[in-house]
């Protein structure tokens, strides 16, 4: 059975390191590949895995993840199949698995049913970047998920004002995801000093651990973040690696934590 995200981050802390979160797109290039990829990531030492529910119009993702989403959609991957695979994986791994995706997937599936089925599948958290806290009074998604014991992860960015950070912190649980640079997911940018000072600012107003993602691909990126983040997220940079390459790359990244 998977641990909770809070427990996993604590475990990494006890080992005096950051936690590593990686990402897969469910059904890209196939569900069987996703299964192998997740198990390999676990074996290679990853702490948390984001399982992305494929969606046709992933507006917060860059070209690499967009194409992966659209390929999975084209292959006819269903949310039910994703739930089934998550159930199977949860029975085999100890690290937390969480959903990431777009809110229309949840809305279309039925909010309550989605939460119920995800809970049954052993999912430990949700990240739906296109559902900001401002829509919570209309959707009640945070409320229903938290009643079921599944935290909803929120994102903050370089331009999130302090007042908003405080509001976001009120609903925060497990960790807050800091978008480390402008732009969508991708692999082409450098980590900057600006990001470190940004994380220090966020830390002042946020009481849960900080995860940092978007644009992280190199061990040096990870070393740069050592004093300012609790979790580092590597997504696009791993998406198109073959299984042997993936294992090597994760081990390299883990060594930098």
């Amino acid at each position: 059975m998977p641990r909770s995200i809070t427990e996993q981050i604590k475990l990494a802390k006890q080992e005096n390191r950051m936690a590593l979160m990686t990402h897969v797109v469910m059904g890209y290039p196939s569900l069987e590949d996703t299964r192998q990829r997740v198990l390999l990531m676990v074996q290679a030492g990853v702490d948390i895995i984001e399982l992305q529910l494929p969606f046709s119009d992933p507006l917060a993702d860059g070209p690499i993840i967009t194409v992966a989403n659209q390929t999975a959609v084209k292959n006819g991957v269903t949310i039910k199949q994703c739930m089934d695979l998550a159930t199977e994986l949860s029975s085999q791994v100890e690290i937390p698995l969480q959903w990431v995706g777009y809110y229309n997937t949840v809305f279309n599936y039925g909010i309550e049913k989605f939460i119920k089925d995800s809970r049954r599948a052993g999912i430990q958290a949700f990240t739906f970047p296109d559902l900001p806290i401002d829509e919570e009074p209309y959707e009640h998604f945070f409320e229903l998920a938290s009643l079921a014991g599944i935290p909803v992860i929120q994102l903050v960015s370089l331009i999130t004002p302090v007042e908003r950070l405080k509001e976001i912190n009120k609903l925060a649980h497990s960790y807050i995801y800091c978008v480390a640079r402008f732009g969508v997911t991708g692999t082409d940018s450098k980590m900057s000093d600006e990001i470190v000072s940004y994380l220090q600012k966020v830390r002042k107003y946020v009481t849960v651990p900080l995860a940092v993602g978007f644009g992280i691909s190199q061990p040096q990126h990870i070393r740069d973040l050592r004093d300012s983040a609790d979790v580092v997220v590597v997504g696009s940079a791993l998406l198109n690696l073959s299984l042997p390459e993936l294992k090597d790359q994760i081990q390299t990244l883990c060594a930098a934590l």
């Binding site: 917060a60 970047p129 296109d130 900001p132 401002d134 960015s157 976001i168 978008v179």
Partner: peptide, 20 residues
Amino acid sequence: ENGHFGEFGGRYVPELLMPV
């Protein structure tokens, strides 16, 4: 005030866009 016309509309965007 949040841009909802009845049940429609709103601002379902990533946090990056909210301040903007």
